[in-house]
Design a protein around this nucleic acid. Structure first.
Lengths: 349, 349
DNA sequence: ATAAAAAATGCACAAAGATGCACAAAAAGC
DNA sequence: GCTTTTTGTGCATCTTTGTGCATTTTTTAT
């Protein structure tokens, strides 16, 4: 078999090897489609790109700039506080690596429009000196946007798992966190432990990841998994927030003593709803959350997993730089473990 | 037997001794693949490199050194081939970062003993110039070993998830891989899809991870999960390999048309066992694996996930350096996505 | 519609990577 | 001490990759 190098890729695609080289070295003037083709073939052939080290003209080293895109829909009145923590980590690492940042709060729909344009660098995304060398995404965008953007520049997402988009993702370690929650409950003597989530208009991969981890944890701890205790996970099952509380209350009657909620805000709402029905947490049942947000006024602190957003920010920059070095490499999921916070919503049986 | 020196290694690999020398002396212009081969063979032959005392250029900074510990029990007759791919990635990145490597094949029990010693740096682990600045672990060690080692130096593990040990782990993305397998089967029209694994004397977190991902994938694709179709996952369930094949055959009778196996070697064995019972794959049922190993002689290639060991090696060095910079940071799980390989063991219903 | 600007790609050459040869320096043996 | 063995390094050679500049194609402006 022929040696896998740029020449081979060029021959197979009937283009000049120079073009192939430029696809890897983040040259600004490469057709996104060509780039996509080259990177895909490279991945297939198992070509491993290693950048040549010393740059030809050391003084020409212009400051590299990366874009940080924070998706904010116009109807959102207040910005989620989490983005601040991520930005802190991002800017800390960017400074250390001598990277300039271009932070933009942007409506996902607007970004999508910009990227529809066939030209390589949409005006709106053009930075002062030139083009971005990479992009970090915070909060959800559409898969289409992701694909269009990642063909142009190396892209990394924080906290959103674009399973279809094929980009690197920095996320909290859902699996480890849920395992901590389930084994905390098991340690407290709970045997009938349910899982619940809300339904959102868009698919939420994190919910499935957490659910999968819940099942895994039960089996690992030797507790049987009862599909009846997984609420709002099955496709087509679409309980409203109120129905969810009803079902939970009913299952508590049936002997369920603990619930793993897919997210803190869902859990706080549930606790309030159960309280209205005369069910007290943690007296009548224990509840755990995930995310570690501050409790709403007057609510007890949830037993939860605190997500280290700043470390995730740091990791996103590290990963982005690696992605830029090797654009055709395998996709990554870099997971940061959250810390368990024992609150007032779980108690021993 | 001939004396173990660089010449011997060079002869065995059919390369110039100079090249071998450069592999050890941290020369920057050495092909990572060559270096990996040399380091691996050297470790196997028991060649211990000791840098010549007075370096020619005294101003030349001494490289930091990290240890690569490959766990090999004495009863293992042949070394798993995968370690070489990991070493390739490790050496590539180590060279770029000016890190020297000390590769050792070691019996986990022996390492455990060394680490029992109260002194900070066990003699056996002392490198030529000084102590390791970090360690990369390949293949399983005991949790105790991990804890002892990670107290001394920053430690990263490849492919083994020490949930209790608290160290960073580089692994294949079990979740993404299993989702690829399940949705591949779903695309082919399969609705009754089982999951199976072998039981090992030690807990295998990867098996649970893959199982959790299987359940998650079913739910995400709108297929009901039937606990009866998860073989050898429940605690206490301990089917032998033969019993497993029996149960599978029986479930195929009951209308199961596809099986997700937790690992390739298990799947190949299953296919052989089923054949003896007159059940043909993929005619009577489809089977998928995980790992992407080469099919045993005369077997059809499995539909599987090919694990990119070299990229995992690269990632391990990156992570180790970050860990060294920030020993107190949150624990990470860095997952590299494998590539789906469509083989001859799955077909449309 | 037409000119101007920008993007995309190829060509030729320069620079870095990879490795062998010859020789020098260090270590080991006596 | 001297000789033999082992290891490190400069130099030469071939391979692979990056970049300036020219040319062609596409987009934008008038």
């Amino acid at each position: 078999m022929a040696k896998v190098n740029q020449q081979l890729i060029a021959d197979k695609l009937n283009i000049c090897r120079t073009t192939v080289s430029r696809c890897f070295s983040n040259h600004p003037k490469i057709n996104p489609e060509t780039r996509a083709k080259v990177l895909e073939l490279a991945a297939q052939l198992g070509y491993r790109y290693t950048a040549q080290r010393a740059p030809r003209n050391p003084e020409k080293q212009t400051a590299r700039e990366i874009g940080v895109l924070i998706g904010v829909r116009p109807d959102m009145t207040e910005l989620p506080a989490t983005s601040q923590y991520m930005l802190k980590g991002i800017s800390e690492r960017a400074a250390a690596q001598n990277l300039a940042l271009d932070v933009r709060y942007i409506d996902p729909a607007e970004l999508d429009e910009m990227l529809q344009s066939t030209s390589r660098t949409p005006k709106g995304l053009r930075a002062g000196n030139g083009t971005w060398k990479g992009a970090i995404l915070i909060f959800p965008f559409t898969t289409e946007t992701i694909v269009n953007l990642s063909r142009r520049v190396s892209t990394v997402s924080i906290a959103e798992d674009y399973s279809q988009g094929g980009i690197d993702c920095i996320d909290v370690d859902h699996h480890a966190g849920i395992y901590d929650m389930v084994s905390h409950l098991a340690d407290l003597g709970h045997k009938r432990i349910g899982f619940l989530s809300w339904r959102y208009s868009v698919e939420s991969p994190w919910m499935y990841r957490r659910f999968g981890a819940y099942v895994d944890s039960l089996y690992r701890l030797g507790i049987d998994f009862d599909p009846e205790l997984a609420l709002n996970v099955r496709k087509g099952e679409d309980l409203s927030v109120e129905q969810l509380a009803d079902t939970v209350a009913q299952q508590i009657e049936n002997g369920v003593t603990a619930w793993v909620s897919a997210a803190d805000h869902q859990a706080y709402r549930l606790i309030a709803d159960l309280q209205k029905k005369g069910i007290s947490v943690p007296r009548d049942c224990s509840i755990t959350g995930f995310d570690g947000i501050e409790p709403p006024l007057g609510m007890p602190r949830l037993t939860s997993i605190k997500v280290p957003f700043d470390e995730m920010g740091v990791s996103s920059v590290i990963r982005l730089l690696e992605r830029m070095k090797n654009p055709a490499g395998h996709r990554r999921h870099n997971l940061v473990e959250g810390r368990i916070v024992i609150g007032e919503t779980t108690q021993s049986l």
